[in-house]
Amino acid sequence: MNAPNLKPLIDECDRALIVATQGGLPLVARPYHALAEQLGLSADEVMRRLRAMVDGGVIRRIGAVPNHYAIGWTANGMTVWDVDDALVDQLGQQVGALDFVTHCYRRPRARPVWPYNLFAMVHGASRDECAEKAGQIRALLGAACQGSDILYSTRILKKTGLRLGS
């Protein structure tokens, strides 16, 4: 890292807190007190550190992480697009702003295997629904798009999230 000072980097104590919560919060009435006891900290210290990690972006959010399939989103498509490099940032912002797109990134191509540089995740109760959403993205990209594909997921092979070694 060239500029570590720009990042709210974590200390050993934060790291221990991450290791203790990466599998989930304790399902007890006072979860932060339970963590405090486990880590040998005060509950106030645990809560202060968690708030600081939320404020600094180390924690994106705290809450329920659903299995999409289980809650009815059985078609999950990674739509990928080969978009003119000069226009991809402007168009990527517009695709990301579509209310049904959950993730939208620019990524490097890996030609000849992979010509696509714009990735947008769409979800539906059916593949038709995903295809309809992909159609809206295609219409938005217009002539700047040279090719596209939808990669549907057919199995979750792993979904644990971050796992730091303890």
């Binding site: 989930g24 180390v58 994106r60 999230g161």
Partner: peptide, 19 residues
Amino acid sequence: LDNKVLTRFGPMFQVEQMG
């Protein structure tokens, strides 16, 4: 959680923000 409707309940981390 037992029925795997949730994969987890807790913080979601952004590892880039930790370096």
